[in-house]
């Protein structure tokens, strides 16, 4: 029982990150109808850019290597890079494709995904790098003492950061003027245009947010597994999350993320031994596929309101 709890908690904590990345997808999908396949590549790009700046900044500025000044400066530069990447994507790739069928836009983001990976590796090189956030991967003591459950401090902090972001995005979406405009554009972009909401601004905002989300997720995953190409695939776990939660639903992304996180860890531990292990990488997709058969609109997929 105690072991089960440990696995479950570890899974839920990693699920918060899936939820965060999935939220980046949902925002772009709702506001512009683009299914952004490049989100995974953006996570990789962000982590690599952060680490890259961390490497070169001491040489450029004379700041102490590994110090907090370099850390925050690299973070700020990586964030700016992500926002610029988002804006460029919107302007160069998507704006010319406005009014094209969804599949065209989807194909464009697949192409974009390779482009982003290429640029990232071209600029920063292809070798695997470590990333240190300064959070130790040790069991949380008070939990271990009080209930004898091992939960990694790193996982807890990471989930905390991601959780705060998820909550602020959800609140922003629901209660602010920008959030309302985003939802309006998602519902009916012609009507949004007619009342003077500039669609381009909205798109730039969602791509900027997606870039920010990618940076946070990239840093956390990069710190855990190293900054490498595989980050792209980790981030694409957001796909089964979306199938589970519904592509247009903010609560769906959150709940879906938690379910995928927990179930893949539980499956790995309890089912894995019977099939030779390593099922963590494909189990979410199978789960999503099964789910697709039962409830194609997802747990929280928005119903079309057909009444006119």
């Amino acid at each position: 029982m105690q072991f089960f709890l440990e696995v479950l908690i570890g899974g839920l904590l990693s699920g918060v990150l899936y939820a965060l990345v999935a939220l980046g997808f949902v925002l772009i999908f709702k506001a512009s109808g683009v299914f952004n396949f490049a989100q995974g590549a953006m996570v990789f790009f962000a982590a690599l850019t952060f680490v890259g700046f961390q490497e070169v900044l001491p040489g450029w500025t004379g700041l102490e290597e590994g110090g907090s000044a370099v850390f925050w400066l690299a973070f700020a530069l990586a964030l700016v890079s992500m926002i610029i990447l988002g804006i460029l994507t919107e302007k160069i790739v998507l704006r010319p494709l406005v009014n094209q069928p969804h599949i065209t836009l989807f194909m464009a983001t697949i192409g974009l995904s390779y482009l982003i990976e290429g640029i990232a590796q071209g600029v920063w090189g292809a070798n695997v790098r470590g990333l240190d956030l300064g959070i130790e991967d040790v069991p949380v003591e008070w939990l271990m003492e009080s209930s004898n459950i091992l939960v990694s401090k790193f996982d807890l902090v990471a989930a905390g950061i991601a959780g705060v972001l998820v909550a602020s995005l959800a609140l922003l979406f629901q209660y602010t003027k920008i959030g309302r405009a985003l939802r309006a554009v998602a519902d009916d972009h012609q009507a949004a245009l007619s009342i003077g909401i500039p669609l381009q601004h909205i798109w730039v905002i969602v791509w900027g947010v997606a870039g920010f989300v990618a940076l946070i997720a990239g840093m956390i995953w990069g710190a855990r597994n190293g900054v490498q190409f595989a980050l792209t695939y980790t981030a694409l776990k957001a796909l089964p999350v979306l199938i589970l939660g519904g592509f247009t639903s903010v609560p769906g992304a959150i709940v879906g993320g938690l379910i995928i996180g927990a179930s893949e860890k539980l499956a790995e531990v309890y089912v894995g031994p019977f099939v030779g292990g390593g099922i963590e990488s494909w189990f979410p997709y199978v789960l999503a596929l099964l789910f697709l058969l039962v409830r194609p609109e997802g747990l929280f997929g928005e119903k079309h309101i057909d009444r006119v």
Binding site: K177, R180, A181, R183, A184, A186, D187, D188, Q190, A191, A192, S194, I195, G196, I197, E302, I305, V308
Partner: peptide, 25 residues
Amino acid sequence: IQVMEGRHCFGHLTIEENLLTGAYT
């Protein structure tokens, strides 16, 4: 400002949220 043919309200927003989006600019 134009009020489009076929009304084009934001279906998933409440009436009040619809009205508030009108003040966006």
